[in-house]
Design a protein around this nucleic acid. Structure first.
Lengths: 199, 199
DNA sequence: ACCTGAACACCGTTCAAGT
DNA sequence: ACCTGAACACCGTTCAAGT
């Protein structure tokens, strides 16, 4: 339901309620129970639409590695488009229907690159979990801005990671590199996992 | 607060409320507001204790790769010990104090293995996000059992991933490998990321 | 000065009452 | 047969009233 997504995006998933949606649609809060058995079922449907978003446009070029990168990059983009909803993807098992086309695309590219089924399973699952972990951690940042002052305040200053150097010498050597660019950090992680994909 | 953790573990984080904790402790629900400003602050404290759990006992042997593996394996174990609380780790930024000792240990081992700071930052963040994504996805499974019938029903049959073969040929080749062993799948992903760590 | 608990403004969901 | 909305059993949090 597009209206529900709009309420989530403008006020945050935390502020979403049947009463809020009813107010947005000028109808009784209990009217939604004819279309969805429960509030959770409605949220699951929203999450599934995010998981499916853009999967039909994934490329299949002659470079399987690039196609795989595009897949997970696009998943990250879709999740970050709805930052307060993003954590709810963990409610959906990786085997749920919404993931099928997306995972089929990724596994097909791994196969096309000459990887055997067992390795492909490992690499696919590693890529998926890495992407979810990285992206949900980014989404939390964006979500805080939305939940605080409504949608629109995106792209504020990024919180710096700055531990006390005397307590954690090795970590503070590395801290300047940690948050300098979320997108390139994400892609670097993907490449790390894909490093020796056969070609 | 150990009592709050007990309430969360027995009935699930979803059923945790100030009133439930008050009932467990035989006191007024508003009494907690002297120790924690808000319910969220209390949950954050619980999450931080899970992140810190066991970090003092992490090994420092002559094998940095094994020590890194032990670090993230132990994080996974701590998160899975409180499956309904686990998703709330996403409320805490990776730069929060609770992560310092743990990330310092990991970065120190990467450094000891001869990795330069920029690479160490990439690999550390990749390992952390991969671990969070993988473990939170596992935790969801355990959490469902707890929230349904109270703690104790752990280790029930694992949901199989079984997509319709005609629709997703590449994926269904791989499906039998996907969920066969969570722990070894997790470790395989770690090794994939650590594959060419200098030694 | 400290503590308690009544009260406020919510919430998801049900189901009796209306049409 | 269908729809509505009053009502139930909650919730986090505040703050006036007690000690």
């Amino acid at each position: 339901m597009a209206a529900a997504m709009e309420v989530v995006d403008t006020n945050g998933a935390g502020a979403f309620s049947m009463r809020a949606l009813g107010g947005f649609l000028d109808c009784d809060p209990t009217a939604m129970y004819r279309h969805f058995a429960t509030k959770n079922a409605l949220l699951d449907a929203l999450v599934d639409s995010v998981i499916r978003d853009g999967v039909a446009d994934l490329p299949e070029t002659d470079d399987p590695r690039a196609d795989i990168r595009a897949n997970f990059r696009q998943l990250r983009r879709s999740l970050l488009a709805h930052p307060t909803l993003a954590p709810l993807v963990l409610r959906r098992p990786p085997g749920v229907g919404a993931y099928w086309e997306r995972s089929d695309h990724a596994v097909a590219q791994l196969h096309r690159a000459g990887m055997d089924p067992a390795d492909a399973a490992n690499v696919y699952q590693t890529l998926l979990f890495y992407t979810l972990g990285h992206t949900l951690s980014e989404a939390r940042q964006l979500a805080r801005a939305v939940e605080k002052e409504g949608a629109g305040a995106r792209g504020g200053p990024v919180a710096q990671v700055r531990p006390p150097a005397e307590l954690h010498p090795d970590l503070s050597d590395v801290a300047p590199h940690l948050r300098e660019d979320n997108e390139s950090q994400f892609l670097a992680g993907l490449d790390l996992i894909l490093r020796d994909l056969p070609r």
